[in-house]
Design a binder for these strands. Structure first.
Length: 607
RNA sequence: GGGGGCGUAGUUAAGUUGGUUAUAACGCCGGCCUGUCACGCCGGAGGCCGCGGGUUCAAGUCCCGUCGCUCCCGCCA
């Protein structure tokens, strides 16, 4: 830039040191000489008088270039454009009466500029930085550093930092120790797909990036650290969603000498304290608890949004004998018929609307959606429904009674296997809740879910797989069922749900090596496999492992909800696209043949 | 692996039934302006309509493919 004003802080010009940030000056500072630095947020050029809003992360300060003070500054100020980085020396002055800007913290004052330096220029911007204008995701990610200057994203990141601080304070207050664990770990391909890191020193051997520090934290309990936590990256090479990134952050926690009740009590207190502090003292009520079975039965999901009712209701017994084949067959083949009663919305949903809902549930494998609109009158006369003709007056009356139907209600029926019917109606319930605005978005409904099954059937192979992970303890009273009835075993596992999102999950771990071996065996892991993959754990358990359990919070997801965002990208500084790429750096990229040779790797594309 | 949405100037969008020179706002450039704070006024430049192919006298518009971003299903111990 022009030599008259210097090009920076370095040689050849008098050394300047910033005296204040751009959010802290007020009328009390009037008359003071200050040195300020920041980005030019907006310029208002009146020809012989130029105003600039200068911005840093602390706020905005208006500076005024008035030729009545230093005439030759006008040319330099005229050359300044949006997002130039400037430094200035000037006098704080109260703004004239009636010119106070109440919208900004520094609105009572302005800086009369005496000296001005342009520290750096800025090209024409790819999108407006001074406001949160709608911008395509691709551009935002490519120029992430500019997006991060904008108020919304900047505030999200600052809020995330604030929440992490609150969590740390709450955890430290309970005696949890912040301990780091390795990122270069051993591949244990039991759960999510892993990111692999080839070893240079050991040809054809690989590290894996941990999908969670699970086993390290358990071993730390064996070591006697008693209470551990870590704000830690985890890596999972699975497909992305709005609330899933390939690398994400957990607040990972573990504690010794506890049972399920103690863990829930501890982390409920910690969460309530941290969230309350995050909202500057907001009252956070105690967390209700619900069994997994009840959640599935009434909400169709294991993470119910309890901000609104609209529960799933079972009508299987009422329609089992009806002439409607779809219902009768669902039940005779072991399935169910469930209903959702949408109160007073019969008129609001057209045929087309219901068709759209039908398409929606088809995504979840449902075959369709039957419906009825309740009008005046009883029996068939009171029902407008394409399936009414298959029912008797008595059946309709029985359904009316069970569902407590009133004129103007819309009923949606799902029929089929238990899993598909629950899942599709559960998703439909959430969809309707959002569409009909059945809840207050800022409400925070925390909820513990307990009593998960320990095992579930693998859809493909004919075997048991762990629902949580293979180190989860059965409930003490269920350990005996490992031999007799694995399906009936409930786990000492729990999820913390917030507004229909899983925000934390954990369990009491197995600390008895014999039980651990038995669970591995039930999962179809041979002794040799168990030894090869988790031998270090089995061995550690033999050397005086205390009873222990823990939990891991999904920090990104939790922050997303607390800040009212729709995607975790908006609370992560440098997120990946849905295909796992970084549009700013270009990762993942190709590597040189030299690098590959060092790693003893030859790349061959498989069909 | 599968299904849906979007892609037009630097940005955000409009673009009718396929039909003349592809519009607007903001931004950008030039000029004017001493109390603005989304400053104002006047003027101007700016387009591979994502890319490739096809249909047609004629394609931003219709069809096929492809790339990018995105939402969802599967997947995520």
């Amino acid at each position: 830039m022009t030599s008259v004003f210097g090009s920076g802080l370095g040689t050849g010009v008098q050394r300047w040191q910033r005296s204040h940030n751009l959010g802290e000056l007020n009328a009390d500072h009037a008359g003071k000489e200050v040195i300020l630095m920041g980005w030019v947020h907006r310029r208002r050029d009146h020809g012989q008088l130029i105003f600039m809003d200068v911005r840093d992360r602390f706020g905005f300060t208006q500076v005024v270039v008035d030729p009545g003070i230093v005439p030759q500054l006008l040319d330099a100020a005229s050359a300044i454009r949006n997002e130039f980085v400037i430094a200035l020396k000037g006098i704080v002055q109260k703004r004239p009466d009636g010119m106070i800007n109440k919208a900004i913290a520094t609105g009572a004052i302005e800086i009369a500029v005496k000296e001005l330096r342009i520290l750096n220029a800025c090209d024409v911007l790819p999108f407006p930085v001074s406001e949160d204008a709608e911008t395509s995701e691709a551009l935002r990610l490519k120029y992430r550093y500019l997006d991060l200057r904008r108020p919304r994203l900047k505030d999200n990141i600052l809020k995330r930092i604030k929440f992490v601080k609150s969590m740390r304070r709450a955890l430290e207050g309970q005696g949890f120790l912040d301990i780091e664990t390795p990122f270069l770990y051993k591949s244990t391909p039991e759960g999510a797909r892993e990111f692999l890191v080839p070893s240079r020193i050991h040809p054809s051997h690989f590290y894996a990036l941990p999908q969670s520090p699970q086993l390290f934290k358990q071993v730390l309990m064996v070591s006697g650290f008693d209470r551990y936590y870590q704000v830690v990256k985890c890596f999972r090479d699975e497909d992305l969603r709005a609330d899933r990134q390939p690398e994400f952050t957990q607040v990972d926690c573990e504690m010794s000498f506890v049972d399920e009740e103690a863990v829930l009590a501890t982390f409920e207190a910690i969460t309530r304290q941290a969230v309350s502090e995050f909202f500057d003292g907001r009252e956070i009520p105690a967390f209700p608890r619900m069994s997994y079975d009840d959640a599935m039965e009434h909400y169709g999901v294991d993470k119910p949004d309890t901000r609104f009712e609209l529960k799933l209701q079972d009508v299987s017994d009422l329609v089992a004998a009806s002439g409607f084949k779809v219902f009768a067959e669902a039940i005779s083949t072991g399935g169910i018929v469930n209903a959702l009663v949408v109160k007073g919305q019969a008129e609001a949903f057209s045929r087309k609307d219901i068709d759209e809902l039908t398409d929606f549930v088809r995504q979840y494998g449902a075959k369709g959606l039957a419906w009825a609109k309740k009008g005046a009158g009883s029996g068939l006369a009171g029902w407008q429904s394409p399936v009414a003709k298959f029912f008797s007056d008595e059946t309709v009356d029985a359904i009316d009674k069970k569902l407590n139907l009133q004129a103007g209600d819309l009923v949606l029926f799902g029929a089929g296997g238990y899993d598909v019917t629950k899942a599709s109606l559960g998703a439909l319930r959430n969809q309707l809740g959002a569409r009909l605005k059945l809840y207050e978005p800022s409400q925070l409904n925390f909820l513990w879910i307990q009593g998960f099954p320990l095992l579930e059937r693998d859809a493909g192979a004919n075997r048991w797989i762990a629902k949580h992970h293979p180190f989860t303890s059965p409930r003490p009273q269920d350990i005996g069922l490992l031999d007799s009835d694995p399906a009936a075993i409930k786990a000492s596992a729990y999820d913390l749900v917030l507004n229909g999102n899983e925000v934390a999950g954990g369990s009491i771990r197995i600390h008895d090596p014999e039980v651990q071996k038995k669970v591995f065996a039930t999962l179809g892991l041979s002794d040799e496999d168990a030894q090869a993959k988790f031998g270090f754990l089995l061995e550690a358990l033999k050397f005086g492992a205390p009873p222990h359990g823990g939990i891991a919070f999904g920090l990104d997801r939790l922050t997303m909800i607390l800040t009212g965002c729709d995607a975790i990208r908006d609370v992560i500084v440098f997120p990946k696209t849905q295909k796992g790429t970084c549009l700013m750096t270009g990762a993942p990229g190709e590597v040189s043949s030299d690098q590959l040779r060092d790693l003893h790797i030859r790349v061959q594309r498989l069909e």
